[in-house]
Design a protein around this nucleic acid. Structure first.
Lengths: 140, 140
DNA sequence: GTATCTGCAAAACATTTGCAATTCT
DNA sequence: AGAATTGCAAATGTTTTGCAGATAC
């Protein structure tokens, strides 16, 4: 979930021509807290854009990724999720309800002793467990 | 890379009957620093066990995972890697040479403000970038 | 009118499943 | 013999690719 006032302008600033499909896909991604999969994005938009194809969703997300305006989330090996918030933060996946939550990570506290002279370009921190709502509801 | 003196005993202690395939797969996984994929494990062992099938590698790794003696590494969405070192540590993937390096992470320094009352069961920290050897060799 | 973008269909992969053959005790 | 394990072949699911038609400038 991030707030972008003018998505068309934002895409152009990042070297992307704003087609209807690209606008809608980015809009959906920036307005959700769900870290959706291709499937979820496709299902959510196909009513609004009945001709939309999954190929376009795949192509568009790959384009967004190459331009650095979306991040790929690989918590689970069988589902690739996407996030329009490219600032560094952690992701917690609840194994009960499947929801993915964001959380802040103070990266300055982390030391990388073995990685001296390595060029770090991407950073991902993933947790798995059970969220407090599932813990309450199911008395797990 | 971890040192297990008696792999057969180690498997039994974790509720796994030590067949030849299971022993060899775990031995390979515990002796390497490469965080191999199913493909890599299969190729490395098929000379020694000519009848080995990928299905067995898949089944065995799933079994090891369910018993908690291997961890799955999902840095990249198109390659699932495996690690017999289940202690918490970070993984750095070099996007040039493809190698995955381990590094220590002092998890006590990380605070999870938004995750109060969440039950954390797994923790993964992944970095991507360019390792010092590729930086030196290619003057990137 | 030419470039680009979209989306269908097919291809390419990775992983799982059903089941028969094999192995182990 | 009986139970568990292995491995082939087929099925499933996800992502990519080739290409023709549609759209935009």
């Amino acid at each position: 979930m991030i707030v972008i006032e003018n998505i068309s302008k934002y895409l152009l600033e990042n070297g992307i021509k704003p087609s209807v499909q690209r606008l809608k896909i980015f809009e959906y991604l920036s307005n959700t807290i769900e870290h959706p999969t291709v499937e979820t994005i496709f299902n959510a938009l196909s009513e609004e854009i009945p001709t939309l194809s999954k190929t376009t969703v795949y192509n568009t997300l790959r384009l967004f990724q190459s331009k650095g305006i979306v991040n790929v989330i690989n918590i689970e090996d069988n589902e690739t999720r996407y996030d329009a918030d490219t600032s560094f933060h952690g992701h917690f996946k609840c194994t009960e309800c499947g929801k993915v939550y964001d959380f802040k990570v103070d990266i300055s506290k982390i030391k990388f002793m073995e990685l001296e002279n390595f060029k770090i370009m991407e950073s991902h921190y993933y947790l798995k467990g059970i969220c407090k709502y599932c813990l309450n509801n199911n008395n797990l």
